[in-house]
Amino acid sequence: MPVMTYREALRSAMADEMERDDSVVVLGEDIGVYGGTHLVTDTLLDRFGPKRVIDTPIAEGGFTGAAIGMAMMGMRPIVEMMTWNFSFQAVDQILQNAAKVRYFSGGQAGVPLVIRGPNGGGVQLSAQHTHSLEGFYGHFPGLKVVSPVTPHDAKGMMLTAIRDPDPVIFLEAGALYGTKGEVPEGEFTVPFGKARVAREGTDVTLVGYGRQVNMLLRAADRLAEEEEPIAAEVIDLRSIRPFDTETLIASVRKTHRAVVVQEQWRWYSVASEVAAIIQEQAFDDLDAPVERVSGAEAPAPYARNLEIAAFPSEQDVIDAVHRALYR
């Protein structure tokens, strides 16, 4: 199977769909001539021309809203948020128009739109440029929210996103653009609402998504090497909304313990929702309270040591697992 980077996987999905379907266009800041700040859209302008690869002024509300209008007319625009932090400039368009037009038009209008870009922190960008917005966007009915971690899923879920009839919030693991993985040749899609068991285990379920999944896999390796080895199952949610309750609950019924890990703040977050779902649907199977490991309740700091302290670490996860196993 060919190996490509996360970045190449995304680009490959977009280019394939643009070849297949004339209604697909890409809009965003510096995505054309410049090639994309993270080079995800590099070469697309040369291949598809300026009517389909549209460089915009730095005005997220304007161009995101315009993309919504294009989508309502039957086009399939892909908006690049240079980073998701800038989506706050477009939040009225995303939440008030994209998420709701189908509903308040009584089903007469739809918004087949993808908004994609890097989400999360870890590269010392401090408070205004570091957010994990999956809980924020996941709160709104009408949106779909996904967060792939492997190049395989990046491509397969991007194809699904572009073909979806509804607006998709596509949260990329910005820190992972250069990571490599196997991606099948030809057309394949990864459906929304299906979690992935990234590692099987019997003693505890570790739940995460996005770049946290890689950290959970490393933590699981260490837990397996402990004096009394712990076999952790790692679930990559992949999709925040729709949500795969079935895979989650099946795992917890097997392990009886769960640790949910996220980079975002804990209050009103994805981990809170996951913990609630587990206690609602698998209360009698639990042998310990569900543990949540989250980002520090403060705006993201700049200094490297503070930033490291602000995000969940392998050790934080291991400590939470020990608490769940009463060790």
């Binding site: 995101t64 809203g65 007319m73």
Partner: peptide, 13 residues
Amino acid sequence: GHIPLGVGMAYAL
């Protein structure tokens, strides 16, 4: 809020 939508619709036409 609807103004950007209208402009995008015109592009699509």
